[in-house]
Design a protein around this nucleic acid. Sequence first.
DNA 1: ACCTGAACACCGTTCAAGT
DNA 2: ACCTGAACACCGTTCAAGT
Lengths: 224, 224
Amino acid sequence: MATRPKPIATPRLPLTRDRVLLSALELADRDGIESLSMRKLGRRLGVEAMSLYNHVADKDDLLDGLADIAVGEIEVPSIGEDWRAALRRRAISAREMLARHPWAAGLMESRTNPSPARSRYPEAVLGSLRQAGFSVEMAIHAFFTLDSYIYGFAVQERNLPSGTPEQLASVAQDILRALPPAEYPYLNEVIVGHVLKLGFDYADEFEFGLDLILDGLGEIRAGA
Amino acid sequence: MATRPKPIATPRLPLTRDRVLLSALELADRDGIESLSMRKLGRRLGVEAMSLYNHVADKDDLLDGLADIAVGEIEVPSIGEDWRAALRRRAISAREMLARHPWAAGLMESRTNPSPARSRYPEAVLGSLRQAGFSVEMAIHAFFTLDSYIYGFAVQERNLPSGTPEQLASVAQDILRALPPAEYPYLNEVIVGHVLKLGFDYADEFEFGLDLILDGLGEIRAGA
DNA sequence: ACCTGAACACCGTTCAAGT
DNA sequence: ACCTGAACACCGTTCAAGT
């Protein structure tokens, strides 16, 4: 009787940069990055959009923060690991991250200003290569080849249908309808003769090109 | 004296879908895709934004049209060409297109509905591979590997600095300032020891990874 | 120190009205 | 058939005002 009860059962958590970023990440994962607006994010946090500006400089800063969280999820190989194993594991981890957060590939594109979190990744890849005996020039070549592949694959994966074999089959049927076999025989062959029959696993598909590239780099290293 | 002179020297051209698309393309090339709005495009064409809807279903349709123009600029190799030469030439032409239109890579991502213009490209690549004797499965692998690389490289190129050696050097200096050598020795080595000294040519860099991948595919074909 | 209301300059798009 | 004005539901962001 002496003290008035708190007006609401769950007292509002104080806003912090981390809470803002985490909530933005969940929103982006669930509804897509294009529907992440300062106003919606504010509503989600029970606050007016303008309050967010106390914890984040502007929307660009928010997106920078998301990009840093994303690259931070890429596995860091233990030191002393074989160069091939280290690069392979990092590549697979990067693809998994980009598949988990479909918005991340797009953010990597637009966040061009360097940040510590985003600089650590290329630094580590170049380090693995140099320590393995690649020349500076070859390390640059290898980095571009690997990174282009990883990134490009992730974007293709994001834009192609996925899901259970049944869902995949149903989407494939829709696509086939726009591709008359007489005009597109090879696309039909691939979809009808392979994807619909045997399914499609992005992780497996990714490893084919990854190993092809790593094999090629191995030969260059052996020849050097 | 009999007829009144036309009020303006250059009578307004009638709006057509092609004029709308061409103007949008120029705007995107010059100011970037993010500043391409229906309202600005209308202003550019001397018309209210709403008039554009007589020639284009909506903004999505406009972007679809731009994506179709972009893929249409990728060179189609002459028939009967060696598979390796055909794939190589197409890949180089695709990279050139994506470098010419920095907005195109992003559009390829978002335009997921198939269109004839955009289906012709994968159809042709798969055709080259199948005719060269690759199995359906290997043709899929090869397509993903090549296309991921091309696309990923183009995006990296778009986001990294370019220009004359002097411009490149000045941007590199700015980047270096954010990368203390003690923490990022390998990035420093690459930038100071190689890029600043020898410059950097994206077309050359692209061909390294491209040839590595084509060599790998050639071995698979020989072994099959 | 943090949050808010009102306001500004933008978006894409619909719809009834004009020619 | 094509173009327009007014309107709607959205944006990001600033700024003075509240607590």
